[in-house]
Amino acid sequence: MANEILDNRGRGEATWHWPRIHPEAHKFAAIAAVASAAAAFFAWETLAWPLGFLVLGICAFFRDPVRVTPQEERFIVAPADGLVTLIQQVEAPRELVIDDGSGTKGLAPGLVTRISIFMSVFDVHINRAPIGGTVRRVVYMPGKFMNADLDKASEENERQHILIERGDGVAIGFTQIAGLVARRIVPFVKPGDMLAVGQRVGLIRFGSRVDVYLPAGTEPRVLLGQKIVAGETVLAELGQTLLIEGISQ
């Protein structure tokens, strides 16, 4: 159940529920359903059945399950479901660093650790806030639609940068990146909005990627190749720089 408090000592109730479908799916599912019904009416079964399964696929793509988000200030949680495909030292995005005239500071210039999370069409595409705080920037950048799994997609694809700042000054930036099939980034937030950690911030339609920029002195707690869950998986712990190794098996 949403908004229920659960803990690591058994408090709360954990039951399985059908995930709700985000309203963004309604128009796509309706179009496919009408087309399927029309094909069935004219006895075009070879078209009606695939269109019927397409309706189910659209609903599955836009599913929006409840997530249990750790409530610990030192944790940075995953903003996206998917596969960790890149962990690199890069320059912080210019759009999150420069003075944008709003009177609020951006990220500090210099190298940061970037975690790239690739979302396939089978992953949940609702993105969530990695920390709680105030939205300081939402910067949309037009661009290409290359494979989101490529390194250069971070600089060349259509993307949207979001910067969230906590009351203690800790700021985390992340970027929603459109992919080869994705054609629209749908924001749910705007500058000035107050967010809780794990709160929904937007979605990207039909396959994409999210980059997260960790502050200096913080290393990932996830491994390259690891499958992670938005709003639940702890990406990093502020101020922790331990080396963690894993084995694929």
Rank of each mutant, 00 (worst) to 15 (best):
Y213M: 10
G103Q: 03
L86Q: 15
P220G: 04
I58G: 06
A14E: 14
R183D: 01
R221N: 15
T241A: 09
L180S: 15
P50A: 02
R9Y: 15
R128G: 04
P65G: 11
A29P: 04
M1V: 13
L235P: 09
C59V: 02
I31C: 03
R20D: 14
L203W: 05
V229A: 07
I228L: 12
V66N: 13
N157S: 02
I58K: 08
G52L: 15
F145D: 06
E4V: 14
L51N: 01
V97W: 12
A236P: 11
A92K: 07
G110T: 09
E4A: 15
L235W: 07
S248F: 14
L224A: 11
A236S: 07
G103N: 03
D149G: 15
W18I: 05
V77K: 09
L56I: 14
F61L: 06
G239A: 12
T134D: 01
T233W: 10
L203F: 08
R11D: 14
G10V: 11
M1N: 12
S36I: 08
E165I: 07
R209F: 08
D100M: 07
E91C: 07
R221D: 14
S102N: 13
A92M: 07
A30S: 11
T113Q: 12
G106S: 08
A33G: 13
V138Y: 01
D168S: 03
G231H: 13
R114M: 09
W18Q: 02
G246W: 04
E245S: 14
V186C: 09
Y213V: 02
V229D: 01
Q88P: 00
A30F: 14
A35R: 00
V210A: 09
N147H: 13
G225L: 07
I117A: 02
V55P: 11
N147S: 14
R20Y: 11
P79C: 03
E232C: 10
I244G: 04
E237P: 04
A78W: 08
A80K: 12
E91V: 11
R200M: 02
Y213C: 03
R63N: 08
L180E: 14
T69L: 05
G198T: 04
T175F: 00
L238F: 12
W18E: 05
C59Q: 00
A2R: 13
G202P: 03
